[in-house]
């Protein structure tokens, strides 16, 4: 019974509450009450879809990571733009990336990061969550892609989650 009154996904509830305050254009008593109701009700109704609770070992590492990713997104767009406008044929490669992360949230964050940053799109995760298929737009070899991701993103995510 008490379980039904709790917030099973604290981060999700916090985000829902904040987004509702943004959407309702100005914080008022009504928006706070409705925001609390939504922050409680939506995670409760969808709890079946979230089997593992989210877990951050070091949540304060998240903002610097996001800044690095944002900077890389800008660099990535410039390099993709240069390739597209240069008129030369790209050298695409499909890479199977062996994952060291195990938490599903960490894997999905890594996959999203890869999709937004230099010349790579993550295409699929193997069913046992050990391999990530990555499509690189323009790369010489798969080691190049794997090393870049391993040192720049995965190491930081591992610190955050383990």
């Amino acid at each position: 019974m008490l379980d039904r009154l709790s917030f099973p996904q604290p981060y999700l509830s916090l985000i829902l509450f904040a987004v509702w305050q943004f959407l309702s254009d100005g914080i008022s008593g009504a928006s706070v009450v409705l925001g609390l109701v939504l922050a409680w009700m939506i995670p409760q109704l969808t709890r079946g879809f979230w089997p593992d609770p989210p877990f951050f070992a070091r949540p304060w590492k998240l903002p610097p990571y996001l800044l690095i990713v944002l900077y890389d997104i800008l660099v990535a767009s410039v390099s993709v733009a240069r390739l597209i406008l240069s008129g030369r044929e790209p050298k695409p490669i499909l890479v199977s990336y062996p994952l060291e992360l195990t938490h599903p949230l960490a894997i999905s964050m890594l996959a999203s990061t890869i999709s937004l940053t230099p010349g790579t799109v993550s295409a699929d995760v193997s069913d046992d969550r050990t391999l990530l298929l990555i499509h690189a737009l323009d790369a010489e070899s798969d080691d190049e892609v794997i090393n870049a991701i391993r040192t720049r993103y995965e190491a930081r995510l591992r610190e955050m989650f383990q």
Binding site: S77, V80, I84, P90, P92, G119, V121, A123, L137
Partner: peptide, 26 residues
């Protein structure tokens, strides 16, 4: 640039790169 990439690049997987990066930033 994202749209040019979508129109110009040779196959689906390479075309995926234009919209996800360039258009989002634009």
């Amino acid at each position: 640039v994202g749209a040019i990439g979508l129109a110009r690049l040779p196959d689906f997987y390479t075309r995926l790169h234009g919209p996800t990066k360039a258009t989002t930033v634009g």
